[in-house]
Amino acid sequence: MTRPYLSIEQLTQRFPDGQGGEMTVFEDASFGIEKGEFVCILGHSGCGKSTIMNILAGLAEPTSGVVKMDGFEVSGPSLDRGVVFQNYSLLPWLSTLKNVTFGVKARYPSWSRAKVEEHARAYLAKVGLEGDVVHRKPSQLSGGMRQRVSIARAFANQPKLLLLDEPFGALDALTRGTIQDELIKVWGDTEQTVFMITHDIDEAILLADRILLMTNGPFARVAESVEITIPRPRNRTQIVEHPNYYAIRNHLVQFLGHRSKELAGQQSGGAAQSPEPVRIDKTKPDADPEPEGARLRAVNE
């Protein structure tokens, strides 16, 4: 078996529980992400999704276990792993454009000022921010626009791995839809590997190639890896009519509703806890499962 592009190996996180003991958030979590893949992780609050995200970003240290990207162990934050934070984390004293050039300058220190600005403007344009709006401060932008800037900043750095921590959590449903479309568009143009936390099942189905399902904590684990067998390009109004849509959706709802609790609290006993692959495809009920690695992938042009 070939090693995936990003491989999480036996990751364990324990925190002191405040009474002298230890609380294990997750134990020996192991999974992989292929290059160019869009993976969403779903799970209830407190199962350690954000902790996994922070470890991947290098902002937190796991108790044990390693994360390997492209064959190398990662430690500490890096420009190779871009992060879009839930609360946007724009620097409020900089204009929209400067917030993006801030990242581009750090990524490409040798570039001229003009090249940096041109690159930043190009990525802002991809998320629909053009013209005078780029000179506004974040406080003068709506929540949706701020998150667009944050996405542009992350994509403009062309990281090897993009981490999205509930990027649409604070947005209203309509804005969320628009930005999801923009996210798919930018992702399609850039072939970026994306790992995203979300609470929204429909969002995960729309965006992801694969959804990782986490059981409840403590001793949470990534229990299943559900392949989204809906061809791209996907459109929110059309995917709901695809025969696989509700089958997958029901599977996810059932997992989050029942099995996330039933499977919770199982200790690993030191063995690697890999998710069980799940493939639901109603379009060809008696066909052989597709060979591993062959994923459905189409790009919006």
């Binding site: 902002l59 934050p77 890096s78 420009l79 871009g82 992060v83 934070f85 801030f102 750090a106 750095n157």
Partner: peptide
């Protein structure tokens, strides 16, 4: 954290 993820 923004500064850290940008390797400043």
């Amino acid at each position: 954290n923004v500064a850290r993820t940008h390797e400043l």
